[in-house]
Amino acid sequence: MQPTRRLSLIAALCLLAVPASAQVTAGPRAGVSEEALAAGIARMAPHRAAYRLDLGEARNSGITSVRGAMVFDVADACEGWATRQRMTLTVVDREGQEIETVSDYATYEAKDNSRLRFSLTQSTQGAVSQRVSGEAELRPDGAGTVRFTDPAGQEETLPAGTLLPMRHTVLAVEAARAGRRILSAPLFDGTTNEGAQDTTTVITAWSAAAGTPRFPLASGASGQMRIAFFERGGSAAGGASQPEYEVGLRYFENGVADDITMDFGDFSVTGRALELSPLPGGC
Rank of each mutant, 00 (worst) to 15 (best):
Ile99Tyr: 12
Arg48Pro: 02
Leu37Asn: 06
Ala228Asp: 06
Val256Asn: 04
Ala175Trp: 00
Glu174Lys: 08
Leu120Val: 00
Ala178Phe: 05
Arg52Met: 14
Ala45Glu: 13
Leu171Gly: 04
Glu246Gln: 14
Ala185Arg: 04
Thr101Gly: 10
Cys78Thr: 09
Gly134Trp: 02
Glu34Val: 15
Ala221Leu: 07
Gln85Met: 13
Arg5Val: 12
Ala17Thr: 12
Ala45Cys: 03
Glu137Ser: 13
Arg181Cys: 11
Gly220Tyr: 10
Asp263His: 02
Arg214Tyr: 11
Pro243Ile: 07
Phe264Ile: 02
Asn254Gly: 08
Ala39Ile: 03
Pro46Gln: 13
Phe118Val: 03
Gln85Lys: 13
Asp104Glu: 01
Glu253Gln: 01
Leu120Met: 07
Ile203Thr: 05
Ala11Gln: 11
Ile260Asp: 10
Arg94Trp: 01
Thr191Trp: 05
Gln2Cys: 13
Leu120Gln: 03
Glu34Cys: 14
Ala36Tyr: 06
Ser119Asp: 10
Gly144Asn: 08
Ala172Gln: 01
Leu158Glu: 00
Glu155Trp: 00
Val202Arg: 02
Ala75Val: 13
Gly153Cys: 00
Glu79Leu: 14
Glu135Pro: 00
Ala210Arg: 05
Asp189Glu: 03
Pro280Asn: 12
Asp263Leu: 08
Leu89Trp: 02
Asp141Arg: 04
Ser21Gly: 08
Ala45Gly: 05
Gly255Phe: 11
Ser33Val: 10
Pro165Gly: 04
Asp112Cys: 02
Ala257Tyr: 02
Val132Pro: 03
Ser207Ala: 12
Arg5Leu: 14
Gly134Pro: 00
Ala42Phe: 13
Arg139Ala: 13
Glu95Ile: 01
Thr121Gly: 10
Leu7Trp: 10
Ala196Cys: 05
Ser114Thr: 11
Val247Met: 10
Gln197Val: 08
Asp112Lys: 10
Leu9Cys: 05
Ala218Pro: 00
Asp73Tyr: 08
Gly96His: 08
Ala75Asp: 07
Asp266Phe: 11
Ala185Leu: 01
Ala82Met: 11
Ala152Phe: 03
Ala11Ser: 10
Ala143Lys: 14
Val32Ser: 14
Ala77Cys: 04
Ala11Asp: 09
Leu116Gln: 00
Arg84Lys: 13
Gly179Gln: 05
Pro19Asn: 09
Pro243Gly: 06
Leu138Gln: 02
Ala257Thr: 06
Arg250Ser: 09
Ala82Gly: 07
Thr88Gln: 11
Ile203Pro: 01
Val170Cys: 03
Gly255Tyr: 04
Pro243Cys: 07
Glu174His: 07
Ser241His: 09
Ala210Thr: 11
Ala175Ser: 04
Ser129Gly: 03
Ala127Phe: 04
Leu116Tyr: 01
Gln242Cys: 05
Ile203Ala: 11
Gly142Tyr: 03
Glu137Ile: 15
Gly248Cys: 06
Ala143Trp: 03
Cys78Val: 15
Glu109Asn: 09
Arg139Asp: 07
